[in-house]
Write a protein that binds this DNA or RNA. Sequence first.
DNA 1: CTGTTAGCGCCTTCAT
DNA 2: ATGAAGGCGCTAACAG
Lengths: 351, 351
Amino acid sequence: MGEGIGDLPGHGSDVPPRSSAKDVARLAGVSTATVSRALNLPQQVDPETLGRVRQAIDKLRYVPHGAARALRSRRSQMVGAVVPSVDYALYARTTSALQAVLDAAGYAMVLAEHRYDLAQEVRVTEQLVSHGVDAFVFVGVHHDPALFTLLASHGKPYVLTWGVDPMRRHPTVGFDNRAATFAMTQYLVGLGHRHFGLLSAPVAGNDRATERGAGMRAALHQAGLALDEADARYGPIDLYAAAGLMHEILARRPRPTAVVCTNDVFAVGGMLACREAGVRIPDDLSITGVDNTDLGATQTPPLTSIRTPVVEVGRAAGEEVIARLEGRFGESSRTLPFEIVMRGSTAPPRR
Amino acid sequence: MGEGIGDLPGHGSDVPPRSSAKDVARLAGVSTATVSRALNLPQQVDPETLGRVRQAIDKLRYVPHGAARALRSRRSQMVGAVVPSVDYALYARTTSALQAVLDAAGYAMVLAEHRYDLAQEVRVTEQLVSHGVDAFVFVGVHHDPALFTLLASHGKPYVLTWGVDPMRRHPTVGFDNRAATFAMTQYLVGLGHRHFGLLSAPVAGNDRATERGAGMRAALHQAGLALDEADARYGPIDLYAAAGLMHEILARRPRPTAVVCTNDVFAVGGMLACREAGVRIPDDLSITGVDNTDLGATQTPPLTSIRTPVVEVGRAAGEEVIARLEGRFGESSRTLPFEIVMRGSTAPPRR
DNA sequence: CTGTTAGCGCCTTCAT
DNA sequence: ATGAAGGCGCTAACAG
């Protein structure tokens, strides 16, 4: 006992056969149709009968066979969540909120990641389609056209998140990444900064990074400034990789007085590099993040960042996708507000 | 167009019917049996026939119907991951590693959380059983007996993680939480500390927290010391909640000279409180975490912690559960090593 | 309110 | 190497 699959090795073919609706029906002295109704439309069943059926269900530990149900009813009650990376803390917060909403409505969440590879995203989505998920939530607005073809040809509802769809062609729940870094850069310009650096994720296939970079450049442009590409670095979302890139920026002469990072991980990695190099924040360098993580908020000095509504996005995406599954339609796009959180990592440049 | 479920509202019943093996068979001029073989046993099919079938599959965007397949073959190729919380960063890292292993082997991962409620854990597991999940990975060693009854009665393989099963009654992949804090506390005692505080998650239903607390108490006991329960605080895994609890500990007189925290979130929350209260770390107070997060490593001073092998656990759990699904058995329990990482948050107590 | 009937799409003998 | 046929467990449609 206690082994994963019963007392004997093998493919699990030696366990007591799981009981079916037929067994429950027999025990309760009704037909399988009544069992089905007792489960799905209990108000249509005589209370006395219902009681007998429920007793039988408990006794036999009957759990309906989801695959059979999905096959017959053409809905699996599963929603796919396709994210770039499961362990990026911020996507996890969105995912968690999504999961809670789905769970409360009786849907299970199937989670898949594509590691920032949009072709892989199509592949994992196809996997999930074949597993029968009813609907999808994706991160990002820009995807391989094949993804939308796939979804359309299977009639799967979906919601995009973490951005805004400029064309409003897809149901989207998110926030304006470009406006976020635009506002942040304006703030830095207002402090008097004129020479900027950028620390970002590779933009290929990542519209969040793309937009965040674009927002910064737009704000500089509006102020009559420009980002020298030699002051920009791109790398994986990893603290120590980011620190390495920041060392390169710190070595530039003249050195930027402010570095905008496309998320808090880059910013904190950058702070590590500054500590190593003896560059004081904010005296020698201002640095900013996006996503307002605990990681950034607890640094010394605490990181100026942008609170993005990642939990709200997950919750709203869940509501939206459920609405679509149930044939209701909400607004086709929802853009949620962000907010600059000013802390000690930013200050006017030194004379 | 571009709406989630086709051009019209409704329950999705108005989309072009998805193509089935029958359609592929017709187009390729073969029987459905051959289509099935082309998919599952291609070497048994004439290469020329195989080519025609594959062409038809591409043309029709045919994706096998997972539910039908699951119904017939009695396996869904889905594995359930049941975790206390999706957005605790450390579980996310385990989950991510698990997902990668499962994905590579053609399994989809269904993720559910129970919010540290073991009764809820049984409920969500039953949900996943009904969704047809073939096998399970759980966090923690201690569970409601009903969980094991459920798993046994359905013949579902499973693996427990993030701990060690003292009785070796269940397949487990993890590390020794008790030994981790035992070692950490010994280290602090070795530095000269005699008066300790504890900051922990509520222990009910959380064997990680339970064991971590027990390890600390055992080390104190061995040194002829004891934890005054008035110096212990329990609360949710949240930075600011932890800071609040730490303020209470700091108000104790005499005040502990070392506070052991059962994970890095508590420890960093504790550091925040110290900063607010003007308590210097490590001069006035030593503080330690567990799990060695980036959050802790980047603090000023950096947090002494214990590197727990959370990624390795996820990977190994995935391998183990796949082995069981395929009728192979590995060792029934694997205990992976942890490692103390000494940093600046610990020092001998001041005179 | 309840039972009967007929598949959902696929895989798997069994036969050819 | 391929085809024909049956049935996995469930629910929807229709009777009664």
